[in-house]
Design a protein around this nucleic acid. Structure first.
Lengths: 344, 344
DNA sequence: CGGTGAGTCTGATGCGTATCAGCAACGCTG
DNA sequence: CAGCGTTGCTGATACGCATCAGACTCACCG
């Protein structure tokens, strides 16, 4: 009598029942080309035995032997499930999950905070076939190691670190900025001011580039000014108006809310938006509860997630190779803060 | 010359560099008690070698050998990241992630939809040390197999399937219902009507039990009626009033919105809520956009998630054993639909 | 009848780690 | 010096699967 409290059945058990070798079971149940050279009757017997025993392959062993788990890692540097539901990461995850599910992959969720052993923790993602990263943070050394080992990694969001070796699916801020500027040009504005924050993030630079390009293309007058939210007040606004500016665009900026400062300044200065001054943001206007719906552009977040996951799968399967970098074009959001310029 | 494009370093490489055996490296780098019997100098040499080579343990191999991955599975039968952000599962996930992170576990996310091979798919969770399930669906056969193998499973939500062998962290609907009834009793109501749906879900039965218990404890008159949303109209409402009922409670019910039907009926019958008739729900009143904030109780969803994950970890580590069943008490939500009964 | 090839299947091996029995060297006791 | 316990390490093995180089059988051809 064999032990009744047998652990999970393994291929060896199936093999015994079917009267074949473990190797044959592996072949019969797998998808390798070798499968074609097994007789129909053997395939059938193995399948039957497997069903009878309720055999299910052990994904861990499978991975150890074959280097593949049908798992995609998702590494976030903040909680993946933010309490702030409006959190901007969320739509990425929705997209990622969709794509993964469609392609038959499951998700391995790492939170930077968890195994807080800092650096080393990232290596744990190797349990998955490949890994998506999202978040501002870029652990260069760790990524370096992963890349060197040929481990597939895709960032959600444009990342220029590591000399372009990183694959990513990002948003085309240049195009987004251009859309906003074009929108203003279409309304008849000719003198624009772009107020941007003082940091040097990639996205910021892209937005500025988009601003300049569109300004040039449309033959407008434009200028850029860097500012802290605290330095934007009624007086500044008045001086801009005096210099002929009819529309101000700014960047969304969580840390340092330029947009809110501009709205407040307009209010202070009794400048009606958009009648006397148009206002737009090169990005999305934060929360839903923002009083006026501000003109700007929306990142195709869910689509970015989907594309990133799909790209990762391609890298994993080898359908695509090398660093692949993809930019998706945002869509213009026309809000209530832009209108034709005031009559001269 | 050894091959330069060497794969990730393994313990064998560290061992060679440190001049010890692979077994020693495993012991030195691990946490087993055997570690104590290694000399300080050896520990040091191994640690140095590991650091030099940038050795990182392979989570897969570790799991295969040691049956432990520091991973918790999360199995949902719908998308884990619902597009409907208001989705009721979401807070569970927030709690789960928190707990997991705090306890040093990462999350393995399975969506019932992904590996759609139906039943067998559930077995994939074995990659994790234990698994949380959420969703109405209960794949009994599959769970049976997992339980029989001693695999730790915890449901989020009370589940009475499998003869009580399932561990869960649920909401105490009995207590929740009692809170609502007590609230009404405190306001002076003496005749209550509980309108419930027609299904026989566990939660429904619990609510009804809570209703009866609290009614008995408070010495009130109560009655229960089963109904479809479509059968609730102005006439029904009037007849209830005629029979002396001053407060109606119902259950939240996504499929068959009794609550909405009641509100509509009150409107039709020109019965003012809560002046002429109080209305409460034994659960949460659906969306945020519900016109009046309906009195009811809130499930401590996030807490349930946290507790469930914590429980699972206890089961995994063996700190607790056997089926553990936990109920958390909801908190009363006093809304705008309950008030004192009309003067007789 | 020896030889060739196609069709089927198996034994052996590796993946990277954890664990355990056991070995060698050493000091100590009687 | 025989006997014994300690300390510090290693060899062997298991975990469950995939893969590959053969081995074996049988039909068929020259």
């Amino acid at each position: 009598m064999t032990d009744v409290i047998r652990r999970r059945p393994r291929q060896a058990d199936v093999a015994a029942l079917a009267g074949v070798s473990q190797a044959t079971v592996s072949t019969a149940l797998g998808t390798s080309p070798a499968r074609a050279s097994l007789s129909a009757s053997t395939l059938e017997r193995v399948a039957l035995a497997a069903r009878t025993l309720g055999y299910v392959p052990d994904p861990v062993a499978r991975r150890l032997a074959a280097q593949s788990t049908d798992l995609l890692g998702v590494y976030t540097f903040t909680d993946a499930f933010p309490v702030e539901v409006r959190d901007s990461y969320y739509p990425f995850l929705v997209g990622i999950e969709r794509s993964a599910a469609r392609l038959g992959y499951d998700l391995l969720l790492f939170t930077g905070t968890s195994s807080s052993r800092g650096g080393e923790a990232v290596q744990k993602v190797r349990l998955a076939d490949g890994c998506l990263f999202l978040g501002r943070h870029v652990p260069e050394e760790q990524l370096q190691q992963l890349l060197d080992a040929g481990y597939p990694v895709v960032y959600v969001g444009r990342r220029t670190e590591l000399g372009g070796r990183l694959s990513y699916v990002g948003a085309d801020y240049v195009a987004g900025a251009a859309q906003v500027v074009d929108h203003l040009a279409g309304l008849g504005h000719t003198a624009l001011l772009y107020v941007r924050g003082t940091d040097d993030a990639v996205a910021s630079a892209d937005r500025e580039e988009g601003f300049w390009r569109a300004v040039a293309a449309a033959g407008l007058r434009g200028q850029v000014q860097r500012a802290y939210a605290s330095s934007i007040d009624a007086r500044a606004l008045q001086s801009w108006r005096a210099s002929g500016v009819t529309a101000v665009v700014t960047e969304e900026n969580d840390a340092n809310d330029l947009l809110a400062a501009l709205l407040a300044a307009a209010d202070d200065a009794d400048v009606a938006v958009p009648q006397e001054m148009s206002l737009a943001v090169l990005g999305e206007s934060g929360g839903v509860e923002t009083a006026p719906r501000v003109t700007g552009f929306a990142l195709p977040r869910q689509q970015m997630g989907e594309d990133a996951a799909a790209l990762l799968v391609d890298l994993v399967t080898g359908r695509r190779t090398g660093p692949v970098q993809e930019l998706l074009v945002p869509s213009l959001l026309v809000g209530e803060t832009t209108g034709p310029p005031p009559p001269a």
